[in-house]
Amino acid sequence: MSEPSFEQQLDQLESLVTRLESGDVPLAEAMAAFEQGMALSKQCSTLLNQAEQRISQLMNEGDDAPSE
């Protein structure tokens, strides 16, 4: 099974935040949701960093292209 996309992970994180902000979640569930949210946040951050690095690499490759 493939890893969820950035967008799917972000949607899941937003859903968790909404649930936690409602205040209607028992403490044990809130802690589990918080832990899951932290993991999702780290995964999203990693994916964003990888995208930034790829964009930077592509931009640098474009600088090396011969001009006409």
Rank of each mutant, 00 (worst) to 15 (best):
7 E>Q: 11
57 Q>N: 11
57 Q>M: 07
63 D>C: 10
2 S>H: 13
12 Q>M: 04
6 F>C: 12
53 Q>Y: 09
17 V>I: 15
30 A>V: 04
25 V>A: 08
27 L>A: 13
60 N>Y: 15
14 E>A: 01
27 L>F: 01
35 E>A: 14
64 D>T: 07
27 L>E: 03
56 S>Y: 02
43 Q>D: 14
34 F>P: 01
30 A>I: 02
54 R>Y: 02
45 S>P: 01
68 E>P: 15
32 A>G: 04
44 C>A: 13
22 S>R: 07
1 M>H: 14
36 Q>L: 00
53 Q>S: 08
12 Q>L: 05
64 D>S: 11
6 F>W: 12
22 S>L: 15
33 A>N: 10
28 A>H: 02
33 A>T: 06
53 Q>W: 08
65 A>N: 13
53 Q>A: 14
65 A>C: 11
16 L>A: 05
39 A>H: 08
61 E>Q: 12
41 S>F: 15
58 L>C: 03
12 Q>F: 03
13 L>Q: 00
52 E>G: 00
32 A>D: 04
9 Q>T: 10
49 N>K: 13
40 L>G: 08
3 E>K: 05
27 L>D: 01
65 A>R: 13
60 N>R: 06
2 S>F: 02
17 V>G: 02
57 Q>H: 06
40 L>S: 10
34 F>C: 09
4 P>L: 15
31 M>E: 14
24 D>S: 12
67 S>I: 10
42 K>N: 11
27 L>K: 08
4 P>Y: 15
5 S>N: 08
39 A>I: 07
50 Q>P: 00
53 Q>F: 09
14 E>N: 05
62 G>A: 09
32 A>K: 04
11 D>Q: 09
37 G>V: 01
43 Q>L: 12
39 A>L: 12
22 S>M: 15
52 E>Y: 10
22 S>G: 15
2 S>N: 15
40 L>R: 07
63 D>A: 07
61 E>L: 15
56 S>G: 14
3 E>N: 04
7 E>L: 12
58 L>G: 06
23 G>Y: 11
57 Q>V: 01
10 L>N: 01
26 P>H: 06
32 A>Y: 00
42 K>G: 09
27 L>P: 00
58 L>Q: 11
66 P>S: 00
42 K>S: 12
62 G>L: 09
61 E>S: 13
18 T>S: 13
56 S>N: 13
21 E>G: 05
53 Q>H: 09
34 F>M: 10
2 S>G: 13
62 G>T: 03
51 A>H: 08
40 L>V: 08
50 Q>N: 04
4 P>T: 15
34 F>Q: 11
24 D>Q: 12
